[in-house]
Design a protein around this nucleic acid. Structure first.
Lengths: 339, 339
DNA sequence: CTGAAAGCGCTTACAG
DNA sequence: CTGAAAGCGCTTACAG
């Protein structure tokens, strides 16, 4: 805490030139002292650092980036909804970026239709890359390419048009369908999420496809949102107006928890004796004693590490082959499904 | 989508000079066309924009910021834990920033002890401000001041050393204590959160202080984490090893939900007949049918709007009086407390 | 209405 | 080992 600075505050930030003048060296020397250039003598470096500390100087990372072309910033694009539903996504990405000394510039479109504004704004920053947790159109991807910003999709696909790291939603859901089938379930209800949500759709289609290919009757598909309440409502309505299913597959855990509560407390059924319920994601709440949800776990941390690695690789080789990484989801067997 | 650009990609980003050359105008004219300078003729502007679009040019916001001193970036500092517990905080801040055309650069220290690294990194960016959701020490605040970065604390106080927008944790908790007292509760258990978490502490102290000032026996204070499981464990242990309280005050809703489940399903007690439970925050889950939690709602959206407004005010008047804004929490009466 | 030039805060050849 | 100078991609007086 330097009284001097506090009592007579300069109007602008302290710059390398200010430090140079105060230290009696050139601005180049100040710069080199801070980039740990080995040619600067230890004495000079120490002196410069001492003066800099006294003056409260920190190099401006973005003035630096003009020349080095490394800003240390990566855009992350995720809808508000998805962040509220799965904040683990953000913490995982932040940690993965941190290991590479990168920082997250967060763009939060209100929904998938608001993505255009977000990407337009993102393009104006000198980014080292962008991680998109929302689906991008060809024109979005093209804009990133024109602006020389590598993009990787997080838990989405772009059909060969961009790098991506993605859980095998389709395969995992199909696997669950198969297991349920083999343990005797025949009447399936699927809470499919919103129609325009690609991840939920993948999961629902993987499930339904497998059931049909096993010769079963097509599952009853119900469009929902992604919330606990949505799951509660959908199950309540479906069972009041139709035959009782013996298994409910939910494209996420919130829906599944709502489904369990509706079945147990609303409809007085036993889970899993009367009805099996399976979720997707394995959010922390799924493990609570009150639910003990059987669900598919996706590894958000690995996904994040892969995504940042893909960004790095793309920077190194802008013209290289596009990579689409698959991560398997693993079935976490708890108490809500008879297998 | 321009085939030309796609097939022969330039190595670097397109710059204003590139566009100027292609459009046959000066670089100043390109710059002026993009800053909507009224002196540029509509014809020229249109031509420049057309060429720019064809080339995929977007002005570099941070090169611009070197001169304008407005980067459009605000640092947000929040621990991983707090984001997982309350992602609404982030979405609220992001929206408030968006209205002011500002973007969030997110710093996520793993815990409150890792804050120093986060602030060091933050200082190197040309920020328009910083919103801290973690407690900052005098030396952190001093660093921000030296780097000319306005800081505002979000839901924290800095005892007159920095601007802040904060829920009246102490007063709200005291108010609940008083209401519980007046409706006949006398034996209080308080789940207080971790010792080093200032917000939880404020709430716990507000509660306990009021009980004592009403002449009651000091509440039993139990240190916990902030999780559902923590609440479950703490209540189970407290009631197995001591007298039964008639009211449990929890410094957040996760704890309160854990407490409810422990009381109801673990200890076979009725909430609120045998024991009243009150939480804090009013997270979305608190309203679920399974809980119907009585709790104190803090308005994270207003808090965020106040915080960004304070930042703006501080930019306008760096030497002005420090402002500490209070936001009241309101009691949401649901089904877990007898009042 | 437009251009040439200075300058924002840095890095980095180029000289010495 | 250090400095003077050019340049990163912009904005903005200053001229015309």
């Amino acid at each position: 805490m330097s009284r001097g600075v506090l009592s007579s505050p300069p109007v602008r930030r302290v710059t390398a030139s200010d430090v140079a003048q105060a230290a009696g060296v050139s601005q180049s020397t100040v710069s080199r002292s801070f980039s740990d250039d080995p040619r600067i003598s230890p004495t000079t470096r120490a002196h410069v650092h001492a003066v800099a500390t006294r003056m409260g100087y920190t190099p401006n990372a973005l003035a630096r980036s003009l020349i080095t072309n490394r800003s240390g910033m990566v855009a992350v694009i995720a809808t508000q909804q998805s962040i509220l539903a799965m904040p683990q996504m953000l913490t995982a990405i932040s940690q993965a970026l941190g290991r590479r000394d990168q920082r997250m510039l967060l763009f939060m479109p209100s929904d998938e239709s608001d993505v255009q504004n977000a990407v337009n704004e993102a393009w104006s920053f000198p980014l080292e890359g962008a991680i998109s947790c929302v689906t991008l159109t060809t024109s979005h991807l093209d804009g990133f390419r024109q602006n020389r910003i590598p993009v990787v999709l997080y838990n989405r696909r772009a059909s060969g048009l961009a790098d991506s790291a993605c859980t095998c939603h389709h395969a995992a859901a199909a696997d669950v369908a198969q297991r349920l089938w083999h343990s005797g379930h025949r009447r399936f209800l699927c809470l499919a999420g919103p129609e325009d949500a690609p991840v939920g759709r993948e999961r629902a289609l993987g499930f339904a496809g497998q059931v049909r290919s096993l010769g079963g009757a097509a599952p009853q598909m119900v469009e929902t949102d992604f919330s606990y309440d949505g799951g509660h409502r959908a199950v309540t309505h479906a069972l009041q107006s139709g035959p009782r299913p013996d298994a409910v597959f939910c494209v996420n855990d919130q829906l599944a928890m709502g489904a369990c509560d509706a079945l147990r407390y609303g409809l007085n059924l036993s889970v899993p004796r009367d009805v099996s319920v399976v979720g997707f994601d394995d959010i922390p709440e799924a493990a609570r004693p009150a639910y003990q949800l059987t669900t598919l776990r996706q590894d958000l941390t690995s996904l994040a590490q892969r995504a940042t690695a893909l960004l790095e690789a793309r920077r190194a080789d802008p013209e290289g082959q596009i990579q689409e990484l698959d991560l398997q989801a693993v079935l976490v067997q708890r108490q809500t499904a008879r297998f």
